[in-house]
């Protein structure tokens, strides 16, 4: 119960914070994230040292925007788990065990970096601004609307789940979780109820002039900051992609130590 309530609260809080805090244009943010993901994905499967350097982007973003790494891991650990599960199968398909382990680690890191970058984008921009940016980049209106409404549907689904779970718990005291016999009807009813509710929410949106795009006001964004933000990050990501930062750091440290000796 409390978990669902907290999840709803978190989604709203993320929406709220992102609405207020941004002067960087969402297109800049989105472009930087896309470039980062492309850069991460483009690493060779055995180039783990180079790939590891990409963690700097995540760390800097988290520190800059005060995103708690602990909270982030807590929220997206199921995706991490999925990435690990996919990666674990890799040694079976690769030529040798050691190469397989190496490519597994690369695959897991790639998955984690991509998910984390998307999480940072979402928490900082909010779904509305992301969709606005996607529309500017000429993504099909239908796809963007579906993305937007899925986000709304998630909240509706959670609210219905909270109500049904409360009703269940009150009539099944002492029982831990749902009895397996009720799973089918519970999930079925949850879907039916949430679809009905989502339909009403959509009606309400339409009655207030919604035509597939949430309105965002471009005048709030600072053009110079937005361009500078995109430019600096693109150069930084490119540098991280080309130069194996950690290897260079290691070499530098050794050089310093040797000089000292």
């Amino acid at each position: 119960m409390a978990k669902i309530d907290k999840a709803i609260k978190d989604i709203h809080t993320a929406d709220n914070t992102s609405e207020r805090n941004n002067s960087v244009h969402p297109v800049s943010w989105l472009l930087v994230t896309i470039i980062y993901i492309i850069a991460v994905v483009s690493f060779q499967k055995y180039n783990i040292a180079g790939l590891a350097g990409m963690v700097l982007y995540i760390l800097i973003q988290c520190m800059w925007h005060e995103i708690s790494i602990k909270d982030m891991i807590k929220r997206i650990w199921p995706v991490f788990l999925l990435t690990v599960l996919v990666g674990i199968a890799n040694p079976l398909f690769d030529r040798t065990v050691s190469a397989g382990v190496l490519s597994m680690a690369t695959l897991i890191l790639k998955g984690i970096f991509c998910v984390t970058a998307s999480y940072i984008l979402f928490t900082h921009m909010g779904i509305r601004q992301i969709c606005y940016a996607l529309r500017i980049l000429h993504f099909p209106k239908e796809l963007v609307t579906i993305l937007l409404l899925m986000h709304r549907y998630l909240i509706v689904l959670l609210k219905e789940l909270e109500r049904m779970q409360l009703a269940y718990k009150l009539r099944a005291p002492g029982q831990r979780g749902l009895h397996f016999k009720t799973w089918g009807s519970f999930v079925g009813l949850l879907l039916l109820r949430s679809i009905d509710r989502a339909g009403e929410v959509y009606d309400s949106m339409q009655l207030r002039g919604f035509n597939g795009t949430f309105q965002v006001f471009p005048e709030r964004y600072n053009t110079v900051r937005s361009v500078a933000y995109a430019a600096v990050w693109c150069i930084a990501i490119l540098a991280l992609r080309i130069f194996p930062v950690f290897e260079m750091m290691e070499a530098a440290i050794w050089r310093i130590l040797n000089l000292g000796v």
């Binding site: 709203h12 809080t13 929406d15 709220n16 609405e19 709304r152 909240i155 609210k159 509710r197 009403e200 929410v201 009606d203 309400s204 949106m205």
Partner: peptide, 9 residues
Amino acid sequence: DSDSQLFMS
């Protein structure tokens, strides 16, 4: 139902 009407944060 006001929950159907209010969907923003």
